[in-house]
C-alpha cells in the first residue's frame, strides 16, 4: 500500500450496549462512592504499584465502566492506601480495590 504518511488504526469505539458492566453495578451497591469519582488521577499519581504494572485507580474505574479487563492492573496493588489518602472526593479506594478483587470473576 502506498505510504500516505499516516496509518489507519483499528476502531476503539466502545459499544456500551454490549459491555459487561456487572462488576461495576455490584460496586455501585457495595461502594456507592465509586460514582463520585471525577477521574482527577490523584490516585494514579500517588500509586506505589504504578511503576510495576501501570496500576491506576482512575483507569481501573474507567475500565470497569467499559467492561474491560482490570486483572493485570490490580495484580500488583499493594493496598498501601495512598490513593485513599489523596482522593479529593474522599472515596475509600482501598475498600473499592478489595471489593473489586472479591467480586471480579
Amino acid at each position: 500500500m502506498a505510504d500516505f504518511g499516516f496509518k489507519l488504526s483499528k476502531s476503539s469505539t466502545l459499544d456500551l450496549d454490549r459491555t459487561d458492566t456487572r462488576v461495576y453495578d455490584i460496586l455501585c451497591k457495595t461502594d456507592p462512592d465509586i460514582r463520585t469519582c471525577m477521574a482527577c488521577g490523584s490516585c494514579s499519581a500517588s500509586c506505589t504499584a504504578a511503576p510495576f504494572c501501570g496500576m491506576s485507580m482512575r483507569k481501573v474505574i474507567l475500565a470497569l465502566q467499559r467492561g474491560q479487563d482490570v486483572r493485570p492492573m490490580l495484580g500488583k496493588c499493594m493496598l498501601c492506601g495512598k490513593c485513599t489518602m489523596v482522593c479529593p472526593r474522599g472515596i475509600n479506594t482501598r475498600h473499592l480495590i478489595l471489593s473489586i478483587c472479591k467480586y471480579y470473576d
Partner: peptide, 13 residues
Amino acid sequence: IRDYSIRQDFSDI
C-alpha cells in the same frame, strides 16, 4: 478467611 478472585503476586517484579 475471605475469598478473593483477584490475588496479587509480587514474586516476578
